[in-house]
Nucleic acid binder design. Structure first.
Length: 429
RNA sequence: GGGGGGUUUCCCGAGCGGUCAAAGGGGCCAGACUGUAAAUCUGGUGGCUUAUGCCUUCGCAGGUUCGAAUCCUGCACCCCCCA
């Protein structure tokens, strides 16, 4: 079967190609055949994050172009720890933790690749399945024999660690062999010819290609995507709360949506190319819009909408939008407790006895109880400077006392400090 | 081993016995402007029952004095010079 579009051309205008082996050979292969390719994700946490999105979306594009993606979740490699791009030796994860992580990540993947679409259906594999019964002696004889240590030492990931004080353990040093063998195994099992990954995976990917040539005498291919960085060179996807996760449990759809809405103009074009389904023409249209009428932020809106829908579904997108309306709207009127809970799910909640509100709770104290101010003096300062809001309505009098009338649901009210810091105060009878 | 300098509020840094909760800058917070941006501007930046009041803070522990971040003694740590 033939693929339905020239995927390499597509990836390259999107800026998704960092490096590849044998560009002519690979290009021809991908134009003429539907290829099975794979990308691996180590289950270091129970969710993928934005950093994984580049490879994930690339895998998705390959599938849309008529190729078959294999997604490898590294139950075995996750036990070892990839030294690539890491300055420190990793802590080993427990088996139970890994098991849990693999399960959770497996569920997330279905959002990105289709597991039920005939001949190009995605396949989910776990390298623990084929590594667990591979004995140490067999592995050394059958795989280790093909790895010249001097070549391994020359790999960037190893070299960096050798030169640092942290050093590298034999365990992490061996990581490369496992990933290399994965590629050979997937070739045997699925006829997998291409491995893709982030640019930090180049060393591991080429190790697999070398191993396949030595063990099977075949030519496999590798392609890496650039890392997702901002215009200033720093990594994208970092927030004050840590990484931007794909799991709604770790990063709410609202926060996820907000992250993309707030992407800087300088990074928006790149993000659109990386992540959106828009055509080149449509993206160039948005580039123009960004230059001529930046205040519209059409690019950011498009990006936030598409990605939130993809990662959290239509419902998640609606929730994020509704929360945005409330957060940036004027005033919070009657909302149901449930709705409020949902919208403010990931902002701090403080619980106080009902009697406090009944007898009148000074706003100064409420702000401290809610964790928005460290002391009453700070509260007074905030209020007198016009930075305090009750249910999104500015309150500038330091003597304000909260009463039952301020409730916005039968038991809660919403405090805000400054532009974006919120807290819910909940009163219990 | 000898000599000299230092340790200040989140950071840098002024402080030379009372007018020091301590200059100035940075950061941070709030406000205005704006695009939920950047830049800019304004205000704030120890705590308390907001008081021209009290309490805690200037490496640590003592002392002198009506009064100390400022003077003295000891201790700890840091830097420099000589050996």
């Amino acid at each position: 079967m033939k693929p339905n579009q020239d995927i390499l051309a597509e990836l390259s205008w999107r800026g998704l190609v960092h490096q590849m082996t044998d560009p002519q050979g690979l290009s021809q292969l991908l134009r003429e055949h539907s290829v099975t390719l794979y990308a691996g994700f180590d289950p270091t946490a129970d969710s993928l994050h934005v950093g994984h999105l580049v490879a994930l979306m690339t895998l998705r594009r390959f599938q849309q172009a008529g190729h078959r993606p294999v997604v490898l979740v590294g139950g075995a490699t996750g036990m070892i720890g990839d030294p690539s791009g890491k300055s420190q030796e990793r802590n080993l994860l427990s088996r139970e933790q890994l098991e849990h992580n693999i399960q959770a990540i497996g569920e997330q993947l279905a959002r990105f690749v289709d597991f039920h679409c005939g001949s190009t259906s995605a396949v989910l594999v776990n390298n623990y399945q084929w590594m667990k019964d591979f004995s140490y002696l067999d592995f050394l004889r059958d795989v280790g024999k093909f790895f010249p240590v001097n070549v391994m030492l020359a790999k960037e990931s190893v070299k960096a660690r050798l030169e640092s004080d942290a050093g590298i353990s034999y365990t992490e040093f061996s990581y490369m062999l496992l990933q290399a063998y994965d590629f050979v195994y997937l070739y045997d099992r699925f006829g997998c010819l291409l491995q893709i990954g982030g640019s930090d995976q180049w060393g591991n990917i080429t190790a697999g290609i070398d191993l396949a040539r030595r063990m099977r005498g075949v030519q496999l291919y590798g392609l890496t995507c650039p890392l997702l960085t901002k215009a200033d060179g720093t990594k994208m996807g970092k927030t004050e709360q840590g990484a931007l996760w794909l799991s709604p449990r770790r990063t709410s759809p609202y926060r996820f949506y907000q992250y993309w809405i707030n992407v800087e103009d300088a990074d928006a074009g790149k993000c659109l190319r990386f992540f959106s389904q828009l055509s080149q023409q449509e993206i160039e249209e948005l580039d123009r819009s960004r230059a001529q009428e930046p205040q519209k932020r059409a690019s950011q809106k498009q990006l936030a909408e598409e990605l939130t829908r993809l990662v959290h579904g239509e419902e998640g997108l609606q929730r994020a939008r509704r929360a945005t309306e409330i957060f940036f709207g004027r005033q919070i009127d009657q909302v149901s407790q449930q709705e409020l809970e949902e919208i403010f799910a990931d902002i701090p909640h403080a619980q106080l006895p009902w009697s406090r509100l009944e007898q009148g709770l000074p706003l100064v104290e409420a702000l401290v109880e809610a964790g928005l101010c460290k002391s009453k003096s700070e509260s007074r300062r905030l209020i007198s400077q016009g930075g305090a809001y009750v249910n999104n309505r500015r309150v500038a009098e330091t003597e304000t006392v909260l009463t039952l009338q301020h409730l916005v649901t039968p038991e809660s009210l919403v405090l805000r400090a400054g532009r974006k810091k919120y807290a819910v105060l909940q009163f219990q009878k």
